[in-house]
Design a protein around this nucleic acid. Structure first.
Length: 576
DNA sequence: GCCGTTTTCGGCCCGACTGTTTTCAGTCG
């Protein structure tokens, strides 16, 4: 038996799906494989274990055929049917499908009729105006494909949630200012679901008359809009000055709830809802829930769910990852809210690389309605961030003790973000560490250890009796640094055994843990703490992103330590 | 290829837009 991660199996199935599309396979077979690829990547099922125990068919969506395909991958070490398909196509050919507007049929046509084997050859053919000679192709197609190809070569694949939120909020604000026809307007799509990575922006609008509106003109005039990609009565696609696609959808008021549901997705959530609607004898589309041709009156998404015998499902968990079944049984989680948060426990002051004094950080925390915080500056070896020597730690403790007298009702914890060294030992000795109320262990160097070495390094830190929290557990920096190689299930296990918290670092540079890992953590009954890692009090506002991640992880108030009372916090961190 | 509170066979979510057609296939979400 060979070894493969869920992700690797998922990618093999996904590649197989792409190739089957090009070969013109049965579309339902393609769909089955596509679906299986998603299921395998999604949740924390242990695909390798199930394969070894011959229990793959227990997974819904995986039947005899795909179970055998997966099993054979573990036995052979590769996917034989995939390799056979690959032999029939030139290497690099499947990359053509990544170009927007170019699908399997067109790709196959290019190969058959012009012997185009890869993106380079396509570019040449487009520039030489060979494409327009093909039947069903014209100059317009040629021009569009060339543009799409050039875009693809230096494209924006995705942006982070914080950026997407601010862009969509600006767009909506400007549309409202420039048009008096908007009855309702809202961001839908993956932004409404608060996914961390956003591929495009979906904005839904309700107007009085879908045929008689001048929204195209308004959209064309928006500051952030560079050009229009597609224009219809109900759908307008545009591109921002930063190269991001925005889809505007236009409906009337009656249609709005169903449209909001539809355009929020996810696609897989929607498919499930439609299947349920069909079973109940209804039809669900973006214009409403229909009984025969009669639209049922639904004033909100909640009413649509209700007619489908489901409780309202929050957008953040609409991913077809068990939420529909939970909604049917009234077992949905009561998701945590921003207002439940009472403290922030990973903060930097001007003792290390923060911008403000401890007192300034306290004042801003009070303004946010918090009752607690922890000052956790960097430890001595992080010179670049002005890490604290033992003497400066002692000096900071004295200052905190004075501030405690000045703010008696507010809980100020003496904390530290201590470096976890390459061998898993910590940057301070236990004699100093035991004087802190909160010790966060973080990795700040030697990111390229082997999976085993990195896992052991962090586990060793978790086992130190003074460690309370593992900070930004995977070390990723969005768009800059990949997460380090880690057996995360072992980290969860160690955290559970040693009563250590794992952090959701809410800083937009990190978003670490991500939603899936956070959900896996909670599934193992390990609690999470959400911290902003603020270096300035303005960054307390990052807490909302941490909440989004937690909500996507199905977190309830009780799952997140920051919601505890001051008394509970004291008990948790052993403060008198 | 998967699935079943009518089914082990016969279905499988649904619609918008584009380009090139003249009624539709391809692509996308």
């Amino acid at each position: 038996m060979h070894s493969f991660s869920n992700k690797e199996i998922s990618e093999i199935l996904s590649e197989y799906t792409d190739l089957m599309k090009i070969m013109g396979e049965n579309k339902y077979r393609i769909r089955a494989y596509d679906n299986a690829s998603r299921i395998v990547s999604d949740r924390s099922i242990d695909i390798e274990k199930l394969a070894k125990e011959d229990r793959l068919e227990e997974i819904k969506g995986i039947g005899q055929g795909i179970a055998k395909t997966i099993k054979d991958i573990f036995i052979d070490g590769y996917c034989q049917p995939l390799d056979e398909l690959k032999k029939e196509l030139p290497p690099g050919f499947e990359d053509l499908l990544n170009i927007p507007g170019l699908g399997p049929k067109t790709a196959q046509k290019f190969l058959d009729e012009l012997d185009i084997k890869n993106i380079e050859e396509l570019k040449k053919a487009l520039k030489n105006q060979e494409i327009r000679k093909l039947k069903g192709m014209g100059t317009k197609t040629e021009k569009n494909l060339l543009e799409a190809l050039l875009d693809y070569e230096d494209y924006v694949s995705y942006i982070n949630l914080n950026k997407a939120l601010s862009t969509s909020e600006s767009l909506i604000k400007e549309i409202k200012e420039k048009s008096d026809q908007i009855l309702e307007i809202e961001t839908a799509g993956s932004i409404r679901r608060k996914k961390i990575k956003i591929g495009d922006i979906d904005i839904l609008m309700a107007v009085k008359d879908k045929k008689e509106h001048s929204l195209l003109k308004v959209i064309r005039s928006l500051d952030l809009i560079e050009d229009i990609l597609l224009k219809g009565d109900t759908k307008i696609s545009a591109r921002t000055t930063e190269g991001l696609q925005v889809d505007f959808r236009i409906v009337n008021s009656q249609e709005y709830p169903a449209a909001l549901l539809y355009f929020t997705g996810s696609k897989y959530h929607n498919v499930k809802l439609r299947q349920i609607a069909n079973k109940l004898g209804y039809k669900l589309n973006e214009y409403g829930l229909f009984d025969e041709d009669k639209r049922l009156n639904t004033a909100s998404e909640t009413e649509i769910y209700k007619l489908l015998d489901l409780k309202y499902i929050e957008p953040e968990i609409r991913e077809d990852q068990g939420e529909i079944e939970a909604a049917r049984q009234d077992k949905l989680p009561d998701l945590i809210n921003l207002k439940d948060i009472k403290g922030d426990f990973h903060l930097h002051s001007n003792y290390s690389d923060g911008a403000l004094t401890i007192e300034e950080m306290i004042k801003a925390a009070l303004e946010r309605g918090y009752h607690s915080l922890a000052i956790t500056d960097h430890s001595q070896s992080l010179k670049i961030a002005n890490g604290l020597s033992e003497d400066r730690v002692k000096k900071q403790w004295l200052e905190i003790e004075e501030l405690r007298e000045k703010y008696p009702d507010f809980l100020i914890l003496k904390g530290i973000e201590v470096n976890i060294k390459k061998d898993g030992s910590l940057d301070y000795g236990n004699n100093l560490l035991k004087g802190f109320d909160v010790v966060i262990g973080s990795v700040h160097d030697n990111f390229n250890l082997s999976r085993q070495a990195m896992t052991n390094r962090i586990i060793k830190a978790i086992e130190n009796e003074y460690i309370d929290i593992i900070g930004h557990p995977t070390g990723r920096m969005l768009g800059q640094r990949k997460p380090y190689n880690l057996d995360f299930s072992k980290i969860i296990e160690a955290a559970k055994k040693n009563n250590v918290l794992l952090e959701i670092n809410a800083s937009p540079a990190r978003f670490d843990l991500n939603d899936k890992m956070a959900r896996d953590t909670l599934d193992s009954n390990v609690k999470l703490i959400i911290n902003t890692d603020a270096h300035h009090s303005e960054q307390y506002a990052y807490m909302r992103y941490g909440i989004y991640i937690a909500r996507r992880a199905w977190a309830e108030k009780e799952d997140i330590v920051n919601t505890s009372s001051q008394k509970e916090i004291k008990k948790l961190f052993g403060v008198k």
